[in-house]
Simulated assay, not measured.
Amino acid sequence: MARAYGIDLRKRVVEAIEGGLSTRAAGRRFAIGESTAGAWHRDWKRKGTYEPDRQGQPEGSKLDTQKAFILSLIETDDKDISLAEIVDRLETDKGVGTCQSLVSKFLKKRGITWKKDRARCRAAARRRPCRA
């Protein structure tokens, strides 16, 4: 990802616009995009600072607030619960819309995984012994 422009350039652009220069003219004068000059001016009016906003996605997940609920589903459930069932329970019980991949990332981040071999061994235990 590209780095943000320097604060000194932002300050000069905003001061030029405040001095009467149009955003289009300020963009041409400082060799930046017209929309960039306008966005910097709007940000300065709104925030009162020349500092750029943080780049990238915000830290954490929207499921962090539901950690106790998700872990309780996994620990107290008699049978193995699927990702689809966790998604459904989050929607119905907590009103949190999510997808299976986000739940999977949430669980993987905490070191919670399911191994298919163990589940297959339990299901096939009556038919033949299974290697573990």
Rank of each mutant, 00 (worst) to 15 (best):
K11G: 02
V13L: 00
P52A: 09
K108T: 14
L9W: 04
A25M: 11
G27R: 15
I86F: 08
S61P: 01
G111P: 14
A26M: 13
R12K: 12
I86D: 07
A132R: 08
A68C: 04
K79C: 10
D53I: 04
T23I: 05
E15K: 07
R120M: 07
E51Y: 08
S61R: 03
C121F: 03
C121Y: 02
R89I: 10
L9N: 04
D77V: 11
K94M: 06
R89W: 07
A39D: 11
G97W: 01
R131D: 14
G38C: 00
R46F: 00
K109W: 15
G6Q: 07
G33Y: 09
L71P: 03
A125V: 06
A119N: 10
I74H: 08
E18F: 03
K62P: 11
T23D: 06
L83T: 13
E75S: 11
G60P: 10
A123G: 04
E85D: 05
V87N: 10
F69W: 14
F69M: 10
P129Q: 15
A132I: 11
E18I: 12
D53G: 12
D43W: 12
S61H: 01
R127F: 15
R127D: 14
E75H: 10
A25H: 06
R118S: 01
V87L: 05
Y5K: 07
A4N: 13
Q57K: 13
E34M: 01
G56E: 00
Y5R: 07
G60L: 08
S22M: 05
V13D: 02
R122Y: 09
P58M: 06
A124H: 13
I17F: 01
E59N: 07
R46W: 00
K116E: 11
D88P: 01
K11M: 06
Y50H: 04
W44N: 06
G38Y: 02
D93R: 15
D53A: 09
D80I: 11
W40S: 00
S101H: 10
T23K: 07
P129S: 15
S22K: 09
Y5M: 05
A4F: 06
S35M: 10
D80F: 08
W44C: 02
P58R: 13
I70V: 13
K108D: 10
K109S: 15
D117C: 04
G19F: 14
L21T: 12
G6K: 08
R120E: 05
K94A: 03
L71Q: 06
G38L: 00
I32D: 03
E85T: 06
D43K: 11
R28N: 09
D43G: 05
K94L: 02
G56C: 00
T76V: 07
L107V: 04
I70F: 02
